[in-house]
Lab assay of single mutants.
Amino acid sequence: VTLFVALYDYEAITEDDLSFHKGEKFQILNSSEGDWWEARSLTTGETGYIPSNYVAPVD
């Protein structure tokens, strides 16, 4: 499982989006939707859509 880490803070715009803070880690559930990925936060356990350009793979 490839994990991703937030590079910036993000505040949800719609109820389907997931708010997060810089440094938060995610498991990507679906990355086939283009620039918005469905993800689960490993910090909160919540799922929602995140902007793919706000995250990077964890080394």
Rank of each mutant, 00 (worst) to 15 (best):
residue 38 E to N: 09
residue 35 D to C: 12
residue 55 V to R: 00
residue 9 D to L: 02
residue 4 F to W: 15
residue 8 Y to H: 08
residue 16 D to E: 11
residue 17 D to P: 02
residue 38 E to G: 05
residue 28 I to M: 04
residue 3 L to S: 06
residue 11 E to L: 10
residue 9 D to K: 04
residue 7 L to C: 08
residue 41 S to G: 03
residue 58 V to K: 04
residue 31 S to C: 12
residue 25 K to W: 14
residue 23 G to F: 04
residue 35 D to P: 12
residue 54 Y to I: 06
residue 4 F to P: 01
residue 23 G to C: 06
residue 17 D to K: 15
residue 5 V to G: 03
residue 28 I to P: 04
residue 37 W to I: 07
residue 40 R to N: 04
residue 12 A to H: 06
residue 48 G to M: 03
residue 49 Y to F: 12
residue 25 K to D: 02
residue 40 R to C: 08
residue 36 W to I: 08
residue 49 Y to P: 02
residue 52 S to A: 13
residue 58 V to Q: 07
residue 14 T to H: 15
residue 31 S to V: 10
residue 21 H to S: 12
residue 7 L to M: 08
residue 35 D to I: 11
residue 55 V to Q: 01
residue 42 L to D: 04
residue 39 A to T: 02
residue 24 E to Y: 05
residue 46 E to P: 00
residue 13 I to L: 13
residue 23 G to W: 05
residue 4 F to E: 01
residue 11 E to V: 14
residue 54 Y to N: 03
residue 49 Y to W: 14
residue 54 Y to E: 01
residue 45 G to Y: 07
residue 27 Q to M: 14
residue 38 E to R: 09
residue 19 S to C: 06
residue 9 D to W: 04
residue 59 D to Y: 13
residue 26 F to K: 00
residue 6 A to F: 01
residue 43 T to D: 10
residue 32 S to R: 10
residue 53 N to D: 09
residue 54 Y to D: 02
residue 4 F to D: 00
residue 39 A to R: 00
residue 19 S to A: 06
residue 1 V to Q: 14
residue 12 A to P: 05
residue 25 K to V: 15
residue 14 T to Q: 13
residue 33 E to H: 14
residue 45 G to A: 05
residue 59 D to K: 11
residue 16 D to G: 15
residue 37 W to P: 01
residue 51 P to L: 07
residue 28 I to A: 03
residue 14 T to M: 12
residue 47 T to M: 09
residue 24 E to Q: 06
residue 55 V to Y: 01
residue 37 W to T: 03
residue 48 G to S: 01
residue 37 W to A: 03
residue 37 W to R: 03
residue 23 G to N: 05
residue 58 V to A: 10
residue 39 A to D: 00
residue 10 Y to K: 03
residue 46 E to L: 14
residue 22 K to H: 06
residue 43 T to S: 13
residue 15 E to L: 11
residue 35 D to S: 10
residue 45 G to N: 09
residue 56 A to Q: 10
residue 6 A to H: 00
residue 28 I to Q: 02
residue 59 D to V: 14
residue 44 T to G: 03
residue 12 A to Q: 05
residue 43 T to A: 10
residue 47 T to F: 07
residue 19 S to K: 04
residue 46 E to Q: 14
residue 52 S to R: 13
residue 6 A to L: 01
residue 54 Y to Q: 05
residue 4 F to A: 10
